[in-house]
Nucleic acid binder design. Structure first.
Length: 646
RNA sequence: GCCGACGUAGCUCAGGGGUAGAGCAGCUGAUUCGUAAUCAGCAGGCCAAGGGUUCAAAUCCCUUCGUCGGCUCCA
């Protein structure tokens, strides 16, 4: 092979030679398949534009538009397309950034007037014009200085700011028609590749997410290779609205919020309270069997104590304070203080350790008004909180025990989750050495279990690094639930000690951890996870008895009492309505079982159960039905919960 | 907290300066019915709260509270 040629190896192993500089597009077409499906090429793992020339040989593959990278490129290009449309309609707009995100893209602009819903339609129309023009999307490389000059001349201060942080001498821009944007690429070859897109919403967003920086206008949108994909996604959004726990909380009469009470303070109605009670009983039992001890601390603690713990200095803006008899008190935002004082209430021996204090502790945090979100972010919530005090050499095992606990519980609820390790933030207390030790303990425990995790630098709590477990809501937004946090500082501040085998005092280490996290948030995620159709063991109402006519009401009452007596959660619908009406209502309430009682059942002394999925069971006795329910509960809860609640 | 939208009956929503509307739910009556809506009648609102503009405000303006979508923060 001479230097004028490059050799390409395709994914099927086939090899071909081309003159150097041949466009990737041509080299891919030569393989004879997939023409037009590609939005980019990948040479030796690097994504490149279809129009860029091959300067070196190697493994080459086409990136199909419906692959993960292909979609990303399409969406990124759609965001550029939108920016071009905005530039045409609002020449004074300044441009910030416009990346592809998980299900679409956004672009941030600085404009005099925020965009309205009508503006979005206008922008969409302009985008369609640009698509029809099939403008070529050209990559242009230029010296950094030249690019800075170009954007300075156009008063694009955000682009200049971005450029000033790029260290490369040569940077790339992409041009389509008269619109040029700073971008790494790659992009689709021409605007005609955008087939199905929609602008979804407008929102304010701080430049670089920093509230001290100007607020920009962000337009969110999405883009798909074809109309069907877009339609499906819009359908998913619609379905997600039906699963929304705020919607279901109302429909299923679980909880409410009230203007007169205040924001972020949930009110539990009977069924919501029962659901919560079931969760909490389950939790208590699970903790007791794992060697935790249940404790309880007060809600108000003197401010001096919060000063000693470091909360006053580091967490004050999230706390509520009040005064009693001229003494300042703080409402607890965390449960740790009382637990420390329990530890301190007597001399501890190494033989006592580890100590695991568990509390369903209700805390209050002043969350900013704009972030409140149904049950998922509130100002009053109850954590399934525990603090483990142990010897440093027990730390690893304790953390592994907690991880096992989390994995087991998430398995019972059937949640998929992501684990993250967060390291030291800027605002924090403790020595570097402590932080390193604690971080190493967390990493070691996860790696020991072979669990994969992401690292979030600087996202730790002020007192220590942590492992977070994130669950997703109906819209795939992630919410932190379980968290395991090391703390080498509180035992120090409170001078916690234990007497070792050597007769000397030593410092224990502490782990803060929650499994569900906040019961409120967990319930919110749980409601969306099951779309309100809870498994039998969690369902606040497990069965509704429905009578066919008035003449069966007496018998139905007896059945009702009997089933309640056996520990089932049953309701009776003896209203004078047609059977279909009552079935429909129970169905909409997502009750797992409907127990039909007509003349047949009265004479056979039984009930005819119908599952909420529509399947019809044989007429059976109340005892058989209770046994069925028990079996199903035990199965779904992996043996934890049968009939009744503790 | 910031940007934007929004707040009308229990719920879902219409009405946008001139007497508050619909469907569902509720109540009453009729009907007594076999697996996702029986019929009829009745009742229900200080239009989130407070202030202004106007002869007149649910409607226009201001403030507050709350909700929604984001930013940021976090369980």
């Amino acid at each position: 092979m001479n230097s004028e040629h490059v050799e390409v190896i395709y994914t099927d192993g086939q090899k071909k030679q081309f003159p150097k500089g041949v466009p990737i597009e041509e080299a891919l077409d030569a393989a004879g398949k997939g023409k037009d499906r590609w939005v980019a090429g990948r040479l030796n793992g690097v994504l490149l534009d279809l129009r860029s020339g091959l300067e070196e040989g190697g493994h080459l593959e086409g990136v199909p538009v419906d692959s993960k990278e292909g979609l990303e490129i399409l969406r990124h290009s759609t965001s550029h397309l939108m920016a071009q449309a905005v530039k045409k309609l609002y020449p004074k707009a300044r441009f910030a950034i416009g990346p592809a995100i998980e299900n679409g893209f956004y672009y941030d602009f600085e404009v005099d007037e925020p965009f309205s819903q009508e503006d979005l339609s206008k922008i969409e129309s302009k985008m369609k014009e640009i698509i029809s023009a099939r403008l070529e999307v050209k990559r242009r490389e230029m010296p950094r200085e030249e690019a800075i000059r170009y954007f300075e001349e156009r008063d694009e201060s955000y682009k200049v700011e971005l450029l000033e942080e790029i260290s490369d001498d040569i940077i790339s821009c992409y041009q389509q028609g008269d619109f040029l944007d700073l971008c790494r690429g790659p992009h689709i070859p021409h605007t005609g590749h955008v087939k199905a897109f929609k602008l979804l919403s407008v929102a304010g967003a701080y430049w670089r997410g920093d509230e001290s920086k100007p607020m920009l206008q962000r337009i969110y949108g999405t883009s798909f290779p074809d109309r069907d994909g877009l339609k499906q996604y819009l359908k998913f959004l619609e379905e997600a609205r039906k699963r929304d726990h705020r919607r279901l909380g109302k429909d299923l009469d679980l909880f409410s919020f009230n203007d007169e009470v205040g924001a972020g303070m949930p009110i539990y109605h009977p069924k919501g309270a029962l659901l919560r009670h079931i969760l909490e009983s389950f939790e208590k039992r699970e903790h007791l069997r794992r060697g935790y001890q249940v404790v309880m601390g007060p809600t108000l603690l003197k401010t001096d104590l919060w000063k000693r713990s470091g909360h006053f200095d580091n967490y004050r803006e999230n706390m509520y304070f009040t005064e009693i008899d001229e003494q300042s008190y703080g409402v607890k935002p965390m449960n740790c203080l009382a637990h420390m004082l329990i530890y301190k209430s007597r001399i501890r021996s190494y033989r006592d350790l580890p100590l695991r204090y568990f509390e369903l502790g209700t805390v209050h945090r002043h969350e900013k008004s704009g972030v409140l979100h149904g049950l998922l972010r509130v100002r009053q919530f109850t954590q399934d909180d525990a603090h483990i005090l142990c010897m440093p050499e027990q730390l690893h095992e304790e953390i592994q025990g907690i991880i096992d606990f989390v994995v087991e519980v998430m398995g019972i609820f059937g949640f998929a989750y992501e684990m993250e390790i967060s390291t030291r933030p800027e605002k924090s207390i403790g020595t570097d050495e402590d932080w390193e030790k604690a971080t190493a303990a967390l990493v070691g425990a996860l790696e020991g279990k072979g669990i994969s995790y992401n690292v979030c630098e600087g996202d730790g709590a002020f007192y220590g690094p942590k492992i977070d477990v994130k669950l997703k809501d109906a819209l795939d937004r992630k919410w932190q639930c379980a968290t395991i946090q090391c703390d080498f500082t509180l035992p120090d501040r409170f001078d916690l000690t234990y007497v070792g085998a050597d007769g000397h005092r030593h410092r224990p280490v502490m782990v803060h951890r929650v499994i569900l996290g906040a019961v409120e948030r967990f319930m919110g995620v749980l409601i969306e996870h099951y779309a309100g159709a809870f498994p039998l063991w969690l369902s606040p109402v497990q069965a509704t008895i429905v009578t066919v006519t008035d003449s069966q009401v007496d018998f139905a009452r007896k059945v009702w009492e009997e089933l309640k007596g056996m520990g089932l959660r049953v309701e009776l619908d003896d209203r004078n309505e047609k059977l279909g009406y009552k079935i429909r209502e129970a169905q909409l309430q997502k009750v797992p079982y409907m127990l039909v009682i007509g003349d047949r059942e009265v004479s056979a002394v039984g009930i005819a159960p119908r599952r909420r999925d529509g399947t019809q069971l044989e007429l059976m006795s109340t005892g058989d039905f209770a046994a069925l329910v028990e079996r199903e509960c035990l199965e779904a809860s992996k043996g934890r919960v049968g009939l009744g609640i503790i």
